[in-house]
Nucleic acid binder design. Structure first.
Length: 216
DNA sequence: TAGGCCATCTGGTCCT
DNA sequence: AGGACCAGATGGCCTA
């Protein structure tokens, strides 16, 4: 939490105002939260759940006449009933595969957000509601800014100590020497260029993780 | 009950 | 042509 106290800016203010302390891990658990809400489903389970939800939505739409179409919903039946003619089965299966792909894509996105939640400082507990998507992104942004600020302060401190060493030959400064500019600020100059080159993103999501080792 | 958050479907656009 | 990405629409669940 001390780290969070250092996070400044409108985003955090907004977060704390909108989510209260619960967003930062100190709020009471929300009794209504289902386990599925706090623990994202595994992809296979999520797909199964999605199929179940689709079927349920279709059933509901069928009985309520709602406009929200789904896999088994009115679109094709209307065509069959109406004057537009029946849609070919190929179009139907194409639509289903597109839906499945989009679902998978969104699950991947959610997995990535979960990964982000895992590394930003807030209480990770089953009794604490997980951060919303927007809260996760805003908190992550501020956390990054805070870390950059801390690095900058560290760099200044090391520079100061090294300066003192030049004058007094203090034994402390040599010990800190390995943590000099390049080591403390690894994302500048050649290091940054090297990283950018290694982690280049040549257009395919699969390539994004090739060098970084976060994903297969 | 209103509002927030979310999952899903869908059609459009861009890229490979 | 097929896949990725995006934004809008819709409905469900939950909390205040």
């Amino acid at each position: 939490m001390n780290l969070l106290k250092s996070i400044s800016g409108d985003a955090l203010l907004d977060l704390t105002q909108r989510y209260g302390q619960s967003a930062l891990g100190f709020g009471p658990p929300r009794s209504g939260d289902s386990p599925a809400r706090c623990f994202p489903l595994a992809p296979s389970a999520a797909a199964a759940a999605a199929d179940f939800l689709s079927a349920r939505a279709a059933a509901k739409a069928g009985e309520s006449g709602g406009e929200h179409t789904s896999d088994d919903d009115d679109g094709f039946e209307l065509d069959a009933r109406g004057a537009l003619g029946k849609k070919p089965k190929e179009q139907r299966s194409l639509r289903l595969s597109i839906n499945a792909r989009e679902r998978r894509r969104m699950h991947d996105l959610n997995d990535a957000l979960d990964g982000l939640r895992a590394v930003i400082p807030y209480a990770h507990s089953p009794s604490v509601r997980k951060l919303s998507k927007i809260a996760t992104l805003l908190l992550a942004k501020n956390y990054i800014l805070m870390q950059a600020q801390a690095l900058e302060e560290m760099r200044r401190l090391v520079a100061y100590l090294n300066q003192g060493q030049a004058v007094t030959s203090s034994p402390v400064a040599p010990a800190l020497a390995p943590f000099g500019q390049a080591a403390v600020y690894p994302f500048t100059g050649a290091a940054l260029a090297s990283c950018a080159e290694k982690c280049a993103y040549p257009g395919s999501p699969a390539n994004l993780f090739k060098h970084c080792g976060d994903k297969p």
